[in-house]
Design a protein around this nucleic acid. Sequence first.
RNA 1: GCCGGUGUGGCGCAGUUGGUAGCGCAGGCGAUUUGUAAUCGUCAGGUCGUGGGUUCGAGUCCCUCCACCGGCUCCA
Length: 677
Amino acid sequence: MGNETSITLDVGSTILDLLTHLDKKLVQNVIAAEVNGEEKDLTYALEDADQLELIDSDSAQGRHILRHSTAHVMAQAVTSLWPGAYFAIGPAIEDGFYYDFFLPDGKHFTEADIERIEAEMRKIIAARQPFLREEYEPQEALCIFSDQPFKTEIIENIASTGSSSGEIAAEIATEAAPNASKVSAYRNSEWFVDLCRGPHVPHTGRLGHFKLLKVAGAYWRGDEKKQQLQRIYGTAFESEKMLNEHLNRLLEAERRDHRKLGLELDLFSFPDEIGSGLAVFHPKGGLVRKIMEDYSRMRHEQEGYQFVYSPHITKGDLFEISGHLNWFGENIFPPMEIDGENKYYLKPMNCPFHILIFRSKQRSYRELPLRLFEFGTVYRYEKSGVIHGLTRVRGMTQDDSHIFCTREQMTGELKSILTFVLDLLREFGLNDFYLELSTRPEGKAVGSDQEWEEATTALHDTANAMNIPLVLDEGGGAFYGPKISVQAKDAIGRTWQMSTVQLDFQLPQRFDISYIGSDNTKHRPVMIHRALFGTVERFFGVLLEHYAGALPTWLSPVQVKILPIRDTHEEYCLQLKELLAAEGIRIEYMQAKEPLGARIRQAKLEKIPYILAVGDEDVASGTVGINLRGVKDPIRAVQKEDFIAKIKEDIQKHWSNPTEGFAIDNPSAVRVEKELS
RNA sequence: GCCGGUGUGGCGCAGUUGGUAGCGCAGGCGAUUUGUAAUCGUCAGGUCGUGGGUUCGAGUCCCUCCACCGGCUCCA
């Protein structure tokens, strides 16, 4: 609440008692409190000199609590519908909560059960059941939960380690008591009690604005070798309004799904006949992709990269030397046998090829940093269940580069790469980033501690200097070195992993590459692996979702569509088309076979940035009527030269939408887009 | 890979308790010549993902495989 006040109460008073002394309006949203920095239920009995912070249901902390409480209600509902169900863990997560269950006797939930469970939950909420906190010695708790194997395991873990932390995942910690000696649980009814650290809302009547979203699978403790459970996801908010806003955001995400857009806009497809996770790009998608790649090539040229090419297959020796067959083997497609002797593999990575280019002759320090760039198509065997549109595929093209430099050049290179990455991503319209530093994967890494330490420090320091938030991803590095990845947030706030920059001391050793230094002796170069788009496919998918399919003009496969009002305007239109084409503008002409409204509609659905409608008045005065994407009303009688100047500016400046240059304050823009969905 | 769901013409969908497939959009053709988000008519298009089984008979029931969707584990 912010303001500090001292209040005197009777001995044994609870927070709830205290609230009754305070202004009703101010405290009606309070669902829990922090006492001396620890979250407590409202039924907590205050002691002398306790410092109290109230937690409102509309705060992040408050939502977390009410979601967690809703998860308990869901578990109770499930237990009442499926007596004997085992429940595992049920934490609040970002935007919602889940609970993992196991139904005995081979039963399982289906999507259809969601409604039944929701209905049962509403009954529990209507009953305004109190959440009663109980504390037990571990032995007692084991008795109470003797028929719940997962809970038993959690309690035993707490009892043996003395705490809920350690090797137990963070989410499990939310289930357990923070102090070692006692185990806390919350009772909602005579027959339903759940192990939990708390706190919870005072009673189930404080809940109700929730929705169950999906049934999914999940492994016990996130370990694929352990039992498979069923997870039910849901979300809950402090009000119906906030809940609906969230559900609308989910719909918006669905509307932006690049798989759907790719089909609607005729950009790419995944024919069954080719195989899972292998895309073909149709002419329009191919054009977008070409523009992306051309732009990238142009920028790489400016940044001092040299272009190389390497084949898609190689003898296994190469990946033996690099260590990929050993460390990355399960992601490599099975080999082709040639002449019974040699095993050839589809390449999963480009780096060894670039190393061989480096090694093809003796190198001098004067050549460094040597920056080799390639749109390298690689193939990775991904488990069938993980494939997802263009963002997770089995055949992908990386905008890959390997930079060979001296130890001394390393930091400078890293810095210029990160600057380059962020610039490039901004040029494609992504503006909101954070960096993630992935460190040594324990048990899955090569190289000495000292090398890892040095590499990690170098990456960390460079990342820190970028003035962008940096988060740590413990153990997420590649087997040969740590990495920084750039996470970009899209237009609706979702984050996508894009670029990666990896520092590598290992492969230069494995391939024994060297350069002659100014001292006339051999030195080992350092290698930096980096991809800016990450992969062209994923980047394409992310851009589609970011722009909801309405690509900026410079990336649009069709930039202008010309519509004559009647076919008598055809001649003028074709002249206009020539004029625009001469400026390198991508344009389509649409004959007057149908009413104008129908053609406008069709062009709008194609998300064309500029639709020109041309009639008698335009022919007479050399003008066009412009329909901007995202704007309902047309702009009439614009001199065609003015239009050309405008669209050229748009293309040159990479406007995210044509409206940017027209000072249009048109709230219908967003509405129109929505109506069409 | 694992758990659950789904798979009907290019796309979106309907197909009652098993009785050999419909609709809308898109497409072809014809008419309509249209000033801002769907003009009218007509025609064509599907061995119902695949392979097997049950049955007199399978889009409907069972099994296999494939693919997709939602997650988990992995990950660019």
